[in-house]
Design a protein around this nucleic acid. Structure first.
Lengths: 214, 214
DNA sequence: CTCCGTTGTGAACGTTGTTCATGAGCTATG
DNA sequence: CATAGCTCATGAACAACGTTCACAACGGAG
């Protein structure tokens, strides 16, 4: 039951993972297969299945590595000092990543998994959201629930813009269309947040009362 | 070159398409294959390739049918009279569709095509956006460019919320989480639109001046 | 009936993910 | 050293896939 993970086991796991990432970067997930992977890593086909449960399991690990990559980009110190510009900067980084690492990024969302994702994967997603929550802090008045909510809304919205824009399903032409759309979205969303909090009632606190049980 | 499309040809095309839709509805795109399709339609494997270029071509046609389905849902007359509530209603319909027709809907976005999509497909997408533009009309002051822009922003954002929510990548639990997030997004975005237009300067008109050539 | 273009067929090919009987390598023991 | 026993690695083999294409069946014209 309890497998002894030898050093060579870990080493091969790293080689396989990095080979897989390199293939996906260049050709997308469709270009990845066991035989190519095994030959790149210099091992037999069966060995891949000793280390990863199956191709889906490998895909999850590639996706996890991509999440770490995004996290490292977002964790960099901000150039902007203005809180609003900091949000835009964060969004710009995300858009930039999705363009530079198109295949890795789209694999994160397009390749639907069979079974549900493991716990550590969700934790990695949550870690990414922390940066958004922090950048939104000036608007959430220290309310962690509001921060979590707005971070989800803003980031999901940004993701949608990225996703449709990059796959050409909004017929916006021009390289920076995603940036422009994202800027509009953020600009208006934040303005809405400010307008509502000035009125004394924040939608983050009671906005869902209108659709409770609906 | 110019194929004569016999009646039986069209009839079989319909049968194949509807069989494909029925399979995708139940099992998703992964459950679809030529042999199953041919046996359902009562024809030979090769016949499928006489009618559709390949599986990708068939997928595009299934996706087009899904777009028409969404369009027909959105074209229904609104129950709400208040313009803001009408937007929420439209969003609710989209979310509802994505949940009821999960496999068809996710195939629209997750199955990336090899070559770029045909013209009539983009036209079908544009037709869907018309409803959003119309619902947004009260905020765009008759400016068609602003309407197109805001429709894209709002709908892409909504789509992102739907997409991440439905695939469990936001760890929001509860059936209506997408609804709640969408409502927050729309509420704040519209509030932002109103706040900015009251100030005399609309972000739809000059908001991108800050990132031009950025 | 014969001819010939059109329409329909499914065996066959190449590639895929996955498995598992087989063998190679190592350690402990007599 | 020889042998047994155990772990680890191998790649041929299998099933299922998309796709092709030589061929059969049809059906109207001569």
């Amino acid at each position: 039951m309890t497998q002894i993970e030898s050093k060579s086991h870990q080493a091969l796991k790293n080689i396989l993972l990095h080979s897989a990432i390199s293939v996906v970067e260049k050709e997308g997930f469709a270009g990845l297969n066991v035989r190519k992977l095994a030959s790149m890593a210099g091992c037999a086909i069966g060995m891949v299945y000793k280390i990863f449960e199956n191709m889906d399991d490998l895909a999850i690990h590639v996706n996890a590595a991509t999440l770490e990559l995004i996290d490292s980009r977002m964790a960099q110190p901000m150039a902007a000092t203005d809180p609003k510009e900091a949000i835009h900067e964060l969004a710009e980084r995300y858009i930039d990543f999705s363009r530079r690492n198109f295949h890795l990024w789209s694999m994160l969302f397009e390749h639907r998994m069979e079974r549900d994702l493991p716990e550590w994967f969700h934790a990695s997603i949550a870690r990414n959201f922390r940066h958004v929550e922090q950048a939104l802090a000036p608007w959430t008045h220290g309310d962690p629930q509001a921060a979590a909510l707005h971070a989800k809304v803003v980031w999901a919205a940004l993701h949608g813009i990225c996703s449709l824009s990059i796959s050409g399903k909004l017929d916006t032409v021009g390289a920076q269309s995603a940036s422009i759309l994202a800027r509009h979205m953020l600009e208006n969303y934040m303005a809405g947040l400010e307008a509502n909090s000035e009125g004394g009632r924040s939608p983050g606190a009671d906005g869902n009362s209108t659709l409770q049980k609906g």
